[in-house]
Design a protein around this nucleic acid. Sequence first.
DNA 1: GATGAATGAGCCTTCATTCAT
DNA 2: AATGAATGAAGGCTCATTCAT
Lengths: 188, 188, 188, 188
Amino acid sequence: MTDKKERILQATEELLAKHGFHGLSMNMVAKEAKVATGTIYRYFTDKDDLLYQLHDHILTIVAQKITQHISDAMPLEQRFRTMWLNIWKMATDSEAPLINRGQFENMPHRGKQYKIALEKTLFAPVHKMFDEGKAQGLFKPLDNEILAALSLEPSAALARKHLTGIFTVSDEARDAAINACWDALITH
Amino acid sequence: MTDKKERILQATEELLAKHGFHGLSMNMVAKEAKVATGTIYRYFTDKDDLLYQLHDHILTIVAQKITQHISDAMPLEQRFRTMWLNIWKMATDSEAPLINRGQFENMPHRGKQYKIALEKTLFAPVHKMFDEGKAQGLFKPLDNEILAALSLEPSAALARKHLTGIFTVSDEARDAAINACWDALITH
Amino acid sequence: MTDKKERILQATEELLAKHGFHGLSMNMVAKEAKVATGTIYRYFTDKDDLLYQLHDHILTIVAQKITQHISDAMPLEQRFRTMWLNIWKMATDSEAPLINRGQFENMPHRGKQYKIALEKTLFAPVHKMFDEGKAQGLFKPLDNEILAALSLEPSAALARKHLTGIFTVSDEARDAAINACWDALITH
Amino acid sequence: MTDKKERILQATEELLAKHGFHGLSMNMVAKEAKVATGTIYRYFTDKDDLLYQLHDHILTIVAQKITQHISDAMPLEQRFRTMWLNIWKMATDSEAPLINRGQFENMPHRGKQYKIALEKTLFAPVHKMFDEGKAQGLFKPLDNEILAALSLEPSAALARKHLTGIFTVSDEARDAAINACWDALITH
DNA sequence: GATGAATGAGCCTTCATTCAT
DNA sequence: AATGAATGAAGGCTCATTCAT
């Protein structure tokens, strides 16, 4: 990726995190990226395009963070706990706040097929974990999307509440939450 | 509530659902509500104020829908299933599309104290259910916010995926998901 | 004059003094006068009409203040000094700041004939003083308008400077200024 | 100064002279200056800023006109008469109509310190004349601001009356007025 | 490729005026 | 006569996008 394009994406992410969607103008992006306004339009057809590409860019990073420190050799439960905590840490460390804050939820999407394909690739280790668990008879025999909603989504949900300051979660409570999610996942 | 004010809120909700935050202009709202632009400002000081009030308005309706057909006399599990399905239905009937697109999460709030207090009142039956479950030793001894994230949030998450067309959930899968959420909730 | 009309004029004057032309809306006037918005239009055809009438209203008061404590029996110099000080006092007491602040300068005028006639009536004692002075050979044989510009205008000009805070005038300086204006007025 | 900026100031001045403060909109200014609305905001942060800068711009021109054809070598009386007539001419030639309509007086200022400093520089020859006259014992020992109000202000006042058509001043009357102002200025 | 001045549609908001009650 | 809710044109200002250099 060109140096300039990288800088533009970087600048956009920072400004988005700092001021939100509302206060994001192309001129500000250009200034922050130390680039002329018109230059942005050499790399992105549109403001929307810039945001789309940023979305993918961030999604990639998020996926990497979520599947960090995971190897297929690890026992299933350990993999699960690690992922759950990876999600949690992203929020509390506020290292990738953009997606967790739902800033991207309001963005117009490109075709859904595209999104599904992208996520399938990025979150392959997650799918692998669910597939293995189901093959072993350990996990409930449900679609991966459902299993994710049951067992990982709560982590994001809690993190969001934590982030907005609605209420705070202690370490013990967090560990108990992980166990509860595990309960949702496995057969009894 | 005045006829006009009601119509303005209604129009705002519809436009928000249709075009998102990005494409919501006061003139559009006025047109949709069949009201002069200036009239909006008799009932709302600001665009922000309009959004705030809409937030509360929707939250109230959502809370009513979620706690519909619930009485304290019903057994805990029945209450839980009913609520879970209430959430689900809101999405699939697309009666209140706003909530399920995540548009709702990112609406501007007034102070968080205000929001916490409001939610406490509106979702009283939910809290009651969790409290009773914990008192009986049936539910895990965790904060209500956490229990909600474990057991009800997945319903909303699935509904959202369902709505965006990412994938479709069969009736059987849905029931299995409810059971899984119940597993997350209860002690084993 | 009706009670209501009087109250409306009163309210307009106060708001004009407080917020200037810029921040004067009919709704504010109505509120300040404790009258319904529509009521204003029973007494004044227009906003402009309201301002015109206010102008005359204030001009009358100003004329009264300027010619206060003046009688035709007083010696000419005493009359002159009294008037000069009356003008000065209006500013420093900030009792009638509206005209001195030039708030009215920008107003569209009705026919100039009207204005000339009105001023002739209101400022009759001033004209009388100049006429007598010229008849006695004490004052320069110039048009009254010119004599006013030479001898009384400086009072208003100084008062304006004083009011805007550009610089402050001591009592001694003020008296010297009066003498200088007298010098401008009389033959040498 | 840029071509565009100059054109915008020019257009503002003309519109102000034509329609007054009341009817001055940024769109009109843009149209008159043959510039896009947004362009104005590249050179002026605000409507207020535009007016401020116009104020200074005009004040500079006014100062130049008033101190035109003046040299320190000229006798005091000649300097005085020249300045007085310079002021007078500005009105009668209607070359700079803005100043004489009082529109100028009410233009928004930045801090008063700023204005005082600016005027000190621009009107240096005027101050010099007064200072020399006082040093020679020819002029009354009063503050320059007061001397200006006594001797030059009447010129502006008469010019204003002349311009609004309230009454007309013959050449002889005008010369007599200059003499009268000189009387106000000198010791007797 | 890169620049950044210029554009102008569109946004939020105000306010003089009307009119059904 | 009086009310005040409703109107909608118009105002100040922003910002995505273009294009001459």
